[in-house]
Design a protein around this nucleic acid. Structure first.
Lengths: 150, 150
DNA sequence: TTGATTTCGTTTGTATACAAATAAATTTTG
DNA sequence: CAAAATTTATTTGTATACAAACGAAATCAA
């Protein structure tokens, strides 16, 4: 006779069914890693946040530093570092806002403008290569779902 | 009379159609940010990479440090820092691999084992809350597409 | 108007994340 | 076997990312 069914060896709140590799957080991290690798293959001179800042300044024009951070999803401490590095490389300039002594207005320099325009095609290629494993319908679906997730 | 159509003001390789907020890299970054916020609400004491290391050690047993890094998608330098911090907190222990003098074998401590099991339900709640904006079908689709992207 | 609150930018500290270089140990190869 | 190549772990340096605390400036409210 076989034994009656017993409790599994693990304590209550079993972990046998926790598959890290299937969790959305883990998949997001890996997808981000792959995207970052593709990005630096195409644009070795900039990071994604740096490019995001340039793109936003190009699209929206001069912005206060914190406002630019909001547009590009970076907190105040993070955008500060990004702008400091872009400024050091001459891609952006800053000046005080005369109407608000607290604010620093960030703008693209001519070099920054040219640099951004020169990278737009690369940026499109980065998106294309990142999404390469998906067909057109899947790409749309993914972007849609990611947007909902925000 | 209207003027004849002229070239747009922007130079060739137009950037007017580059929408940062619709690029997969930007959406991945924002989704990851939201997930991280949810994670730290539920498990303030661990980071996602730290939890990933515990989960993998629990699932696979003792591993060499670099092997564990591979399982959890962290490079050698990153997993080192993660393990150092987990070790300092007594959640993992390390010992030299007698069969390979280069390797360090990492394993869950009893405390680490208990801590992990105690967090599994929180981890499931984190996934649930992260995916809350999606219905069941969309969740499956997203995980599928993210996996393809890797 | 002034006192409370909010916003802006900065600083400090911690934690990934990755490139590059290195030394030691192991494995592969000729 | 001996040389070459690879693997493992470490270290250094740079770049996000975020929490927390801070002073200065602007806004709100009683």
């Amino acid at each position: 006779m076989s034994q009656p069914k017993t409790k599994p060896m693990v304590a209550a709140g079993g972990d046998a069914d926790y598959q890290l590799a299937q969790q959305v957080g883990f998949l997001l991290r890996r997808a981000t890693q792959r995207h970052l690798a593709i990005f630096s293959d195409h644009i070795p001179d900039l990071t994604p946040p740096q490019f995001a800042a340039l793109a936003m300044l190009n699209a929206l024009g001069a912005q206060s530093q914190n406002q630019l951070g909001r547009e590009t999803a970076m907190d105040a401490a993070t955008i500060k570092g990004v702008i400091d590095r872009l400024k050091k490389r001459g891609l952006v300039t800053t000046e005080p806002d005369p109407s608000d002594q607290r604010r620093i207005v960030v703008q693209l320099s001519d070099n920054g403008q040219r640099a951004f325009k020169g990278y737009v095609d690369d940026a499109k290629a980065i998106t294309e290569e990142t999404l390469a494993p998906l067909d057109a319908r899947e790409r749309g679906t993914l972007l849609n779902l990611l947007e909902k997730l925000t």
